[in-house]
Amino acid sequence: MAVLVIAEHSNAALNDATAKTVSAAKAFGGDIDVLVAGHNAGAAAAAAAKIAGVRKVLHADGPAFEKQIAEAMEALIVPLMAGYDALFAPASTSGKNYAPRIAARLDIMQLSDISAVIDKDTFERPIYAGNAIMTVKSADAKKVITVRGTAYPAAADGGSAAVETIAAPAGPFAAAFVSEELSKSDRPELQSAKRVVSGGRALASAEQFQQYILPLADKLKAGVGASRAAVDAGYAPNDYQVGQTGKVVAPELYVAIGISGAIQHLAGMKDSKIIVAINKDEEAPIFQVADYGLVGDLFKIVPELTEKL
């Protein structure tokens, strides 16, 4: 049996999600190869080769792969799957983008966002915003799987797999990358941060979001998240959104400030180790999942907390 893990990377560096996906692939079993599809991504390929348990790294280089355009990923990966029993990709916006294209071309019903591997046909995945956990058995001979980032810890380094260069389809493809606007931040990345400070609608403006949430995040060396309400209102950028349709996080400490705790938000953070909620409404549902709740005015509490930490 052999598994192809698709690496998540920025060309210059490997994303943590890759080693987490390798861990899920190990639970599935078989030989594990990692595909690094990128442009000038030698550094990422070298990093993937160091993950313990990887048999070899396949490195495909081409301009269309710099941003892992889904149409190009499909053209590259579909033929590769002749040699593999399963494809494992991170359930990132990138993995979610290309994996179903590959599954459809291979006539496989994809297993999205799995949280556990039970055996080679059986998997657990959350449905209904994590309000139910479904165990499903796949009848397809091969599997296409995306893995929830919080489900498995990152596989450790310690390997020294060979890096094999493979040909990358040159296109042209029917879609092309135009531009991107990435949030720039020196803070820890939301999905790998050990601590997360999230703000909600009660912050009431983008200025106050920055004025109250960011200093506390800096003090805690935390990543910054937000509820959908805060993102919809423009208080925080879209990539801060934690929840059912945003990012799923499970840090050691999650501080929810002015977030009521809609089920869609809880779906993205309720596996955090310790949850702190600060909200003026003592009936807010967030308190039902919080380890420590503080009822009161966030505009007084948060500066005091930031100062005293």
């Binding site: 309000n131 956990i133 479904m134 165990t135 058995k137 380890d291 420590y292 503080l294 005293k308 930490l309």
Partner: peptide
């Protein structure tokens, strides 16, 4: 293609405690 083996409730998270003030919160953390 996928047979549902079972659907279960997620692991329940117990509600914790309300703390009185920032100092208590910090000491608990």
């Amino acid at each position: 293609r996928l047979a549902v083996v079972k659907v279960a409730e997620p692991r329940k998270r117990e509600a914790g405690e309300k703390v009185a003030d920032v100092d208590t919160l910090i000491s608990k953390l």
